[in-house]
Amino acid sequence: MLTDQKQVNPRQVLGVETLKSLNERSDRKGLLQLIAHLTVMGVSGYLWGSHIEKGWLVFPVLVVYGFSLASMFAALHECVHRTAFATNRLNGAIAWLAGLLSLYNSTYYRHYHKWHHRYTQTDKDPELEDPKPTNWQEYLWQLSGLPWWWGKLQTYWKLTTGQIENYPFLQEKSGKDVILSARLQLFAYLGAIALSSALGHPEAFFLYWMLPLAVGQPMLRFILLAEHTGCTDDDNPLTNTRTTLTLFPIRLLMWNMPYHAEHHLYPSLPFHALPKAHQQLSPYFERVEKGYVQVNRNIVSRF
């Protein structure tokens, strides 16, 4: 529940010393988080590979594996903010790897996401180029992940062919970096396809990456819809972003991104500091809600 919004300076809710303490980045905590995520991915991926066509366990294992791939987007997000690790080179390397697994380009996303934070829920916010659903058809279409796949095909085509003039957040130098990064990523995918074919398993790229990622996307869309949908269309971080209280497995694989209002208010906070920050910041936010099912029920109730 929002507390005295008109009398609060959003950027001064936390004291200087408190913010300094919370802002401490850690390679150890980042690596432990990454290992936990990769462990879930590795175990579920192994079970998916060894249980194909072997009974009822196949589908839940595929869902977990697929979501662990899709939610590498959360690892990318933290590394792009350079808050996942204390070492910036580690942030850069893991961001690129996480983007490779989740079909995002970290170099492009860093500039895109910077503008999202700068212009959240206002006319220059690049996320608003994907309209929020206003009816059941649009809602289910977004949850399917199909618009996301189509958007990826369009974006990668433009980036790899150097068509960046319609991206205002890319300058000449950053644009060249993005083009090179996107092309390297495409080569990595082509290399994976070639390697699997050379090893006699041409279906592996589809079965162990594309199919699971497609299965995981609806879950990720379900979560990401909650971040700003139904919030105010202005630059007030106390009202334009939602925090969703959810289960530990989701918080783990989403790198604490459900504490999204806290993150938008203080983007410098590393993922491991967000739960502690929530304890102090939650009374100031307009939207702190319990569970993604409830949030999505509220979203569709407005159709």
Rank of each mutant, 00 (worst) to 15 (best):
R11C: 04
L32H: 13
L31Q: 07
R25L: 04
L38Q: 10
W56R: 11
V40I: 15
W48H: 13
G55R: 07
S44K: 01
S44C: 08
H37C: 11
S44G: 06
L19G: 06
E24I: 14
G45H: 04
T18K: 10
G42D: 03
V58Y: 10
G55N: 12
S44P: 03
N23P: 00
P60L: 06
T18L: 09
L22V: 04
F59C: 10
Q12P: 00
E17V: 10
L57I: 15
A36H: 06
S50E: 14
W56S: 11
R11F: 12
W56M: 13
Y46I: 05
P10Y: 02
H37K: 09
L31K: 08
R28P: 00
G42E: 04
V43G: 03
N23G: 15
V64K: 00
G42C: 12
H37Y: 06
V61P: 01
L14E: 02
E53C: 07
V16S: 12
H37N: 10
S44W: 00
T39V: 14
K29M: 12
P10A: 07
W48Q: 08
R25Q: 11
L62D: 04
A36N: 10
D27M: 09
L32N: 12
V16D: 14
V40R: 00
S26D: 08
K29Y: 09
Y46V: 07
R25F: 02
G45E: 00
Q12W: 00
L62F: 08
R11T: 08
N23V: 01
V58C: 09
V58T: 13
S21H: 13
P10E: 04
S50G: 05
Y65K: 02
L62Y: 05
